[in-house]
Amino acid sequence: MGRIWRCAGLRWAADGPVLVWDGGRRSALTWGKRVAFGVEEGGVRTCVGARGHVCPLGAEVSARSTGARCEECARLDRAHSVAADTLADDPRPYRVYLAWFGPGMAKVGITAVERGSARLLEQGAVCFSWLGSGPLMAARRTEELLRAALGVPDRVPYADKRAARAALPASEADRAAELAELHARAVALSGWPESLDRAPFRPVDHVAAFGLAGAPAAVGEVGSLVAGGVVSGELVAAAGPDLHLATGTKGVVVLDTRLLTGWGLVPAGAREFAVPVRALRLKERAEAQDGLF
């Protein structure tokens, strides 16, 4: 069958999205590029391990999981996570940010200063603004203060982000308006830690970086990969871990690249798109409830 490829995930570089493969090889993704691969015949999806270590059990994991880790490896990975408050002694400076994904859909979060805006690209933030910077625990306290005072969460489900992405305001000013109001309310609050320096409102818009301006709307999303299945399409946009692929027969379909990890992947050849696809939830309904390439 030839070489089996294993995806280590999607990363965002300065010039756009990049698929990373086990062993370090990288595949830059550009608009119009054909993204095509098959899933190993007879293969199963196995745990990707944690913190650079192989899963000692080689455990099989669900095809629908976006984490691709067994319970033990997931526990180990979370035991060394800033998000889980297990690295309180991290000496690096952190930034607090406001991210916006669509009307009525904003969140507050933190990221290490050294990472720049990579975290916002990885999350699929349509636009964002920094709120301040300082030591980790000061940033974490500020995040909690703002989350409670502004009534915004620290997490937004990816299904909701995809639904909102299909109907964004046309102008940057309109996309930044809700952030501007939240930022003004945030900096007016008392109780900020003294060690956290506040930042002025300077919105950064990612619509161009994501290729969303003028891109055809997505109509479906890949629910899971299956052994022997095929994904094939032209890349028309990308946001966070999602690739928007024009498939021809199924319209534009969103592939969450987190579903790739743990599978053995092979060249697709000329085979047609053949993995489970479900209708993309619309925003109104959401509110009501070069290796292979």
Score class of each variant (00 low, 15 high):
155 R>H: 14
156 V>Q: 01
157 P>Y: 06
158 Y>G: 10
159 A>N: 10
159 A>V: 10
160 D>L: 13
161 K>Y: 03
161 K>N: 01
162 R>H: 02
163 A>L: 10
164 A>H: 02
165 R>I: 09
166 A>P: 04
166 A>R: 11
167 A>V: 05
167 A>F: 02
168 L>S: 05
169 P>A: 03
169 P>R: 02
169 P>I: 02
169 P>W: 02
172 E>D: 15
173 A>M: 04
174 D>R: 12
175 R>N: 10
175 R>E: 12
177 A>I: 06
178 E>K: 02
181 E>Q: 13
183 H>Q: 09
184 A>S: 14
184 A>I: 05
187 V>H: 04
187 V>M: 04
190 S>A: 14
190 S>F: 01
190 S>Q: 06
190 S>N: 06
192 W>N: 01
195 S>D: 15
195 S>E: 15
197 D>Y: 03
197 D>I: 05
199 A>R: 01
201 F>W: 01
201 F>Y: 08
201 F>S: 07
202 R>T: 06
203 P>K: 06
203 P>W: 07
204 V>M: 11
204 V>G: 08
205 D>S: 14
206 H>R: 12
210 F>R: 08
211 G>R: 06
212 L>G: 13
213 A>M: 10
214 G>V: 11
214 G>L: 14
216 P>R: 08
218 A>W: 02
219 V>C: 09
219 V>Y: 04
223 G>L: 12
227 A>R: 01
230 V>T: 15
231 V>N: 11
234 E>R: 14
237 A>C: 11
237 A>M: 14
237 A>L: 15
239 A>T: 09
240 G>K: 00
240 G>N: 01
242 D>C: 15
243 L>C: 05
244 H>K: 05
245 L>P: 06
245 L>V: 08
247 T>W: 12
247 T>Q: 13
247 T>H: 10
249 T>N: 11
250 K>M: 12
253 V>H: 05
255 L>A: 07
257 T>P: 00
257 T>A: 11
259 L>R: 12
259 L>I: 12
259 L>G: 05
261 T>W: 05
262 G>V: 07
264 G>V: 01
264 G>Q: 01
265 L>M: 01
266 V>W: 03
268 A>T: 11
269 G>E: 04
269 G>D: 04
269 G>Y: 02
270 A>W: 06
270 A>C: 06
270 A>G: 11
274 A>T: 08
275 V>A: 07
